[in-house]
Design a protein around this nucleic acid. Structure first.
Lengths: 253, 253
DNA sequence: GACATAATTCCGGTATAGTGGAATAATAAT
DNA sequence: ATTATTATTCCACTATACCGGAATTATGTC
């Protein structure tokens, strides 16, 4: 990929993680043959790797006959990550409070490789429920958080991180890159960003950064509100998020 | 390991997972050199693997200068596991209820490879707090749950799973294997087990199995109570756990 | 500063992991 | 049953990942 030297074989470890990511993406048990097809990888290789991953508990037999899914060991490793950074504890209580005061859905979002994802969510008690599935990987530019998470990067870094096709919105429209970059700069300076969702037509998204001591944006706290609510309570929500942003950034490692 | 054919090189993927497990065990960022030493693995190999794992987001730079720890991608994979099996949701509400009614610490425990571990915990509001760290890997025979989790296995399977040294208790005493196996059979038949902790001197542990449809024990719900409490409320706690055990086993996949 | 020690990168050889393809087993369709 | 289709295992070849050891760089000590 990176160097000019053309490889003829993939590294097992790369393929192994591809398998895990694929299962995470499709969210359902798959048989080795399906995985091989989906990844465009040699079947014999996938069979071998699946067995290795099963041995390690990174995958588990799912439906008794062939299909596998993510394994318990991944859960425990994830727990260890969570405990170490202690994100959940601190962030979740802040989110609870915001949702209590606003009745809106609150989210904590992070980068996951070159995609955006919702890591934590507290659902508001609105009559209709607003929420993308947590854990889904979404193109960064589609989201309000996508203006904050990359705040620390140069234009070049940003453009080399985001796959070009991710600038095409779900409707097929193309996002203006220069404008996107400008939004990032502005959001970074303001420590806040909000806009009408470009993924749906009825919500407004508020986002504020959570920064580590070095100032890098490790995640965002967001409020996802129906548009009319957002108009009515704009300043309140904005203030709540900025306050949460600052208090959480204090406690980050 | 399994076949007689002696290998001279380890597979990268095996070493990679060893690295992840090691970091989980020590719970703190490590530098590649430390990891290599701790694992008894070639340094150059570990450096290479650590870089690969960093590229994949399975590890993250921790302290700015060299040390790495478990990465975000593991957290997300763990989330996906959790969501799919939906354990947390169902189990946690049951645990909440038990702790509310008993004021004791409730745990949900699982096998993790050849060790026992606490996957979920709701702490009771006793004046002194009872809890081993969640996520720690503990020898199976040291625990009450260790009588239930292996209920579906034959003697041979059990003995080949558990490393011999795990029958040595923390104090140095040796656990009688025949007696341990007998306890497993009895616990399995009763759907319940309890005993005074052998890890500390002041608690009594209650455990009941959570079984999947096939009858295999996927985890245990446990109450960890001070000994005098345990005596006073023995029948109540026992009944609560058995009820929870049965209701949860209904809902398992 | 010089020196000692430890951490990290570099590099070439070889054991072997990843692969294509064939053989076999399982499953579905007829 | 027979056939067609698909899934899985087996096997041998070679590109390369793993590894030992040397070279380099960083870190600490005096």
């Amino acid at each position: 990929m990176k160097d000019g030297h053309e490889r003829k074989r993939a590294r097992g470890i790369d393929r192994a993680f591809d398998i895990l990511d694929h299962l995470r993406a499709v969210k359902s048990p798959q048989r080795p043959a399906d995985i091989a097809q989906a990844l465009g990888a040699p079947r014999s290789t996938i069979y071998d790797l699946v067995n290795t991953l099963l041995d390690h508990g990174m995958l588990e037999e799912a439906d008794g006959k062939g299909a596998v899914f993510l394994g318990r060991r991944l859960y425990f490793l994830g727990l260890a990550y969570d405990e170490h950074f202690d994100l959940t504890h601190k962030v979740e209580s802040v989110m609870q409070e915001i949702t209590e005061r606003s009745s809106e859905t609150t989210q904590f979002c992070m980068l996951d490789g070159d995609k955006y994802t919702v890591a934590l969510q507290v659902e508001g008690n609105r009559p209709f429920r607003i929420s993308g599935d947590i854990g889904d990987r979404t193109p960064i530019p589609w989201t309000a958080s996508g203006r904050l998470l990359l705040g620390g990067m140069s234009d070049e870094e940003i453009l080399s991180l985001i796959p070009p096709e991710d600038f095409t919105l779900p409707g097929g429209d193309r996002l203006d890159v220069a404008r996107y970059l400008a939004e990032i700069r502005k959001a970074h300076a303001a420590g806040f960003f909000s806009f009408d969702s470009i993924v749906d037509t009825f919500t407004h998204c508020f986002a504020a950064p959570v920064r580590d001591r070095a100032g890098r944006c490790v995640g965002t706290i967001c409020i996802v509100a129906p548009k009319d609510d957002a108009v009515t309570h704009y300043e309140t929500y904005r203030a709540m998020l900025i306050e949460a942003s600052e208090s959480l950034s204090q406690t980050m490692p």
